[in-house]
């Protein structure tokens, strides 16, 4: 892959549109409409758009996979760039799977409903639910990241919230552990919804009389190794009456889904995902993910996986 070109496309996309890949912007917050969530408040739900972006990232990666190793790949991208059609690239590559879009929106609604069921009072940001910029940070595009992060921080601060509730590992990590380094005076409290649900577990009630089933848990690297979120998902799944199985590598030693190199080396990414999927399948049980990137990556290699929020909402709502 032409990494330089990919990096500059990502940076330019974020600069011009706010998102790393072309995306239907209204779809970023329209998932929340049926829920009638209040706007703003002391605590706000901040998705950082990663769940919503995952199907688009997935379709871009599928496209890159088909180009990998072909000279034409670099050529096509270069052409798109010289023609200044960075945003139009979306029409070519971002033919995201509508089923996947629906699925991630359902995950977000489940998260929102679970928070409400746990008695948490919170609002939503709607069009101010900006992308966090995490991919810029991961790719070492620090200047572009710092610029974007400043805007995100300003927007969040302007909302008047003092607590930011995040829903995925990457956004949680970047907001809680990276923003303070890159944005002067960033002092908002950041908590992940799994942490909040765990704190308020007494307010939740498992449905009675439904048989539990076995789940095998795939910890995301950023929850387990960077943000110390290991016990919460297990506690919640067990509380919901599910039997939690550990794969050979779990918790702090969890194994990457391959996602982070998907744009640089799609074939390597695929092989890592296959390695992990085989391992998860070997345990027996329904595979639980907690990260939109893990979700689309394990799915791309044929995995039948489901987000933890869907498991929890079925049993706790």
């Amino acid at each position: 892959m032409d990494v330089k070109l990919i990096l500059s496309l990502l940076a330019e996309n974020v600069e011009r549109t706010g998102y790393p890949v072309p995306v239907d912007v209204e779809r970023i917050y329209s998932w929340a409409k049926p829920l009638n969530l209040p706007r703003g408040g002391r605590a706000v739900l901040y998705t950082g758009a990663l769940y919503q972006l995952a199907p688009y990232i997935n379709s871009l990666v599928r496209h890159l996979e088909s180009l990998e190793g072909r000279r034409a790949g670099g050529l096509a991208l270069r052409l798109a760039k010289t023609l200044g059609k960075i945003i139009d690239l979306g029409k070519v590559v971002a033919k995201a799977d509508p089923g996947e879009i629906k699925a991630v929106e359902e995950v977000l609604r489940s998260i929102a409903r679970l928070l409400s069921a746990a008695g948490v009072e919170y609002g939503y940001l709607y069009e101010d639910d900006m992308y966090s910029g995490v991919i810029l940070y991961d790719m070492g595009l620090d200047e572009a990241f710092a610029r974007h992060a400043k805007m995100v921080a300003e927007t969040l601060e302007k909302s008047g919230a003092s607590l930011i509730i995040t829903v995925d590992p990457h956004t949680t990590h970047v907001l809680r552990s990276v923003f303070p380094e890159y944005v002067d005076g960033f002092g908002l409290e950041v908590k992940n919804y799994l942490e909040i649900l765990s704190e308020n577990i007494d307010s939740l009630k498992p449905r009675r009389g439904e048989a539990g089933y076995r789940v095998v848990i795939h910890d995301p690297c950023f929850y387990a190794r960077h943000e110390g979120i290991v016990e919460e998902p297990r506690q919640l799944l067990r509380f919901a009456g599910l039997e939690v199985e550990e794969p050979p590598r779990s918790g702090k030693m969890t194994y990457c889904c391959g996602g982070p190199v998907e744009a640089v080396s799609p074939s390597l990414s695929r092989r890592i995902a296959e390695t992990r999927l085989r391992e998860l399948q070997g345990v027996g049980g329904r595979i639980v993910t907690m990260c939109p990137i893990c979700y689309v990556n394990l799915r791309r290699v044929g995995g039948k996986v489901e987000d933890i929020a869907l498991h929890l909402s079925r049993r706790l709502l």
Binding site: R225, C256, G259, P260
Partner: peptide, 13 residues
């Protein structure tokens, strides 16, 4: 070489 790293941090661990 850096862009082949997943940043998964198993090595750090």
């Amino acid at each position: 070489l850096a862009h082949l790293c997943l940043g998964c941090a198993r090595c750090d661990e």
